[in-house]
């Protein structure tokens, strides 16, 4: 026993030492992309494409590491020291937080890349079960009695905030901009929500895998993905009359990338998102490309035409929307009461 213990200590110490060193001593460069939940499948494909392209151009083998989680949580981790070279998150607000709290990227990061640094967009749609048993056509159907709606918690999930704002935009338009009645309508909507998951992916599994609820308010790309994973016949996508334009932004975390000597490859990585190949892969993985010219027409045909409101034009930007709706004690806190 004593011998065993002493040897294990030595081994353990050696392992600890090695792992400490490993962060710096890797021969090949590794780029860390910290992203949000629904992009897993897209970046899996995109990373392979980028690595191949980089290798062809420079001869260097690059490893791309991925971390996924709720957008807000991921931003928090980067602020706390997660060594992300690039962040590809759900909301500009989350990257703003990183910029202001860590100082590792400039405040005007969104100006560095085209289209407010959003290489792809998405929107919010409904996912319903086969044959749409509750006959859900538009937002108005979600507040009816007996309809169970699945959406994540806007306090923790980026996707959930888009869902909320899309619903708000619809109600506000229907009710002629009457804020009190819009609030009541939103309260009715959240009364129909039996489970508030913390992230978009959690809500999707609740709806698709665990079979809870009649309709899932979802990222468009998530909805397509569910159809792909669970069989197209089992779920139907319903496009509402009005939705919101979601622009998930990307940025180089310059402080980290520079310290790790990755600035060049990090910038190239994000630029590649805008390249024909990157845009094509985005479309393939159900994100709407900002430059559809090189995407597969069959992929593009899957995206329905829908009237979209914009966060900047209709809600005055993320900072304002965040304060008005989602801050502690703001509108969401006022209207939401857990039902059980």
């Amino acid at each position: 026993m004593p011998y065993l213990t002493r040897r294990s200590i030595a081994l353990g110490a050696a392992a600890l030492f090695l792992s400490l060193g490993a962060a710096q001593a890797l021969a090949d460069r590794a780029l860390l992309n910290v992203s949000y939940d629904p992009t897993r499948e897209f970046y899996k494909e995109f990373n392979a494409a980028f690595a191949a392209d980089w290798k062809a151009r420079t001869g260097e083998t690059i490893t791309i590491e991925q971390s996924h989680g709720g957008s807000g949580k991921q931003a928090r981790a980067v602020i706390d020291g997660l060594q992300a070279d690039v962040v590809t998150l759900a909301l500009a607000g989350d990257i703003d937080q990183i910029a202001s709290k860590s100082g590792k990227l400039p405040k005007d990061w969104a100006k560095k890349l085209p289209n407010n640094a959003a290489p792809y967009t998405s929107t919010i749609v409904f996912l319903v079960r086969k044959d749409n048993p509750k006959n859900i056509k538009d937002w108005g159907d979600l507040v009816k009695d007996g309809v169970q709606v699945i959406t994540p918690n806007p306090k923790t999930s980026g996707g959930a905030r888009w869902n909320y704002l899309a619903a708000w935009a619809y109600a506000s338009k229907q009710l002629g901009g009457d804020e009190t009645r819009t609030k009541e309508w939103i309260a009715d909507l959240y009364r129909n929500v039996p489970v508030l998951d913390t992230g978009a992916r959690g809500s999707t599994t609740t709806f698709a895998q665990r079979g809870i609820g009649d309709v899932l308010i979802s990222w468009e790309n998530e909805a397509f993905l569910v159809q792909k994973e669970f069989g197209a016949g089992n779920f139907e996508i319903v496009v509402p009359s009005l939705s919101i334009l979601a622009e998930p932004p990307v940025a180089v975390v310059e402080g980290n990338a520079r310290a790790k000597g990755n600035l060049d490859v990090a910038e190239a990585y994000l630029k590649f998102l805008y390249s024909p190949e990157g845009q094509k892969l985005a479309a393939k993985n159900f994100f709407r490309p900002v430059d559809p010219s090189s995407a597969d027409p069959a992929d593009l045909a899957r995206f329905p035409k829908v009237e979209l409101v914009s966060i900047d034009k209709d809600f005055g930007g993320w900072a304002k929307a965040q304060k008005e709706f989602f801050a502690d004690g703001a509108i969401f806190d006022q209207i939401y009461r857990p039902t059980n």
């Binding site: 706390d80 997660l82 060594q83």
Partner: peptide
């Protein structure tokens, strides 16, 4: 050990990664 934790700046200076890593 976080970037804004008590030992964060010191660790950063010596380029030692504790959280979000194996240690």
């Amino acid at each position: 050990f976080g970037a804004h934790g008590w030992l964060g700046p010191w660790l950063q200076h010596y380029n030692i990664q504790i959280i979000f890593a194996v240690p």
